Computed example of a mutant assay.
Amino acid sequence: MSHSVEELARIAVDAGFHIHKELGPGLLESVYEAVLAFELEERGLKIDRQKPVGIHFKGLAIQEGFRADILVEDRLLIELKSVERLQAVHGKQVLTYLRLLDLPLGLLMNFGAATFKEGIKRIVNNHTDFAS
């Protein structure tokens, strides 16, 4: 069964909410990543963790420009943090990843915030033409 990227995002946010409610803030980012990946797989989704993403620049190929924390069904990027509050650079980082992966939507989930609602951000990639 193929889900839309919006449906994948809804499932991921629901899973993240329940994890934050159950475990609370303050654990290592890697713990939240493992638990979220497990939860999404339990819900029948294909998950890639720490997927290396290559970057090409003027003929230079860098095999691992970055690693995607979680890639859901090859269509939704989830970047995880466990910090007291998100910084602007975190959102910019996700947008760069979305552009490099040519994906429309990413979720920035911060499990370090007091409530999950204040720790979740949707990042939309509207840029298909990088020259503009």
Rank of each mutant, 00 (worst) to 15 (best):
R49K: 13
E6Q: 01
K51V: 06
R10S: 14
D14S: 15
Q50H: 10
I47K: 07
F38K: 15
V35N: 00
L36V: 04
L40N: 05
G44K: 11
L23H: 02
L40A: 01
K21N: 03
F57M: 10
E39N: 05
I55G: 09
V53E: 02
A15Y: 01
F57H: 10
R10L: 13
L28P: 03
H56K: 10
R49L: 05
R43K: 15
A34W: 00
A9T: 03
P25R: 15
G26W: 10
Y32S: 02
L45Y: 06
G16I: 09
E7Y: 05
G24C: 10
L40Q: 03
Q50G: 08
E33H: 05
G26K: 12
H18M: 13
G16V: 13
S30V: 04
I11M: 04
A12E: 12
A12Y: 11
I19W: 03
E42V: 00
L40Y: 02
F57E: 06
V13M: 11
E41V: 04
I19Y: 08
R49Q: 10
R43D: 06
Q50P: 00
G16D: 13
E39R: 11
H20K: 07
L28W: 08
A12W: 11
G24L: 12
V35L: 02
I19P: 09
G16N: 05
L23D: 09
A9W: 00
V35I: 04
L27Q: 01
L45C: 03
E41Q: 14
G16C: 09
Q50I: 10
Y32D: 00
G24F: 09
E33W: 02
L8R: 00
G44Y: 13
K46F: 00
R49D: 06
D48E: 14
E7N: 07
Q50S: 07
G44S: 08
V35G: 02
A9F: 01
G26F: 11
L40R: 00
V31H: 12
K46S: 04
P52S: 06
G24V: 11
L28R: 12
D48I: 01
K51M: 12
I11D: 04
A37F: 06
D14L: 12
R49H: 00
Q50M: 09
R43A: 14
H56N: 10
K21S: 05
D48K: 11
A34R: 14
R10M: 11
L27F: 14
V35T: 06
E33N: 04
V13W: 05
K46V: 05
E33Y: 02
P25K: 15
E6V: 04
E29Q: 14
A15R: 02
R49V: 13
G24R: 14
A37L: 12
G54Y: 11
D48G: 04
F38E: 15
A15W: 03
I11G: 05
A9I: 00
K46P: 01
G54D: 11
G44V: 08
L40M: 01
K51N: 05
G24W: 13
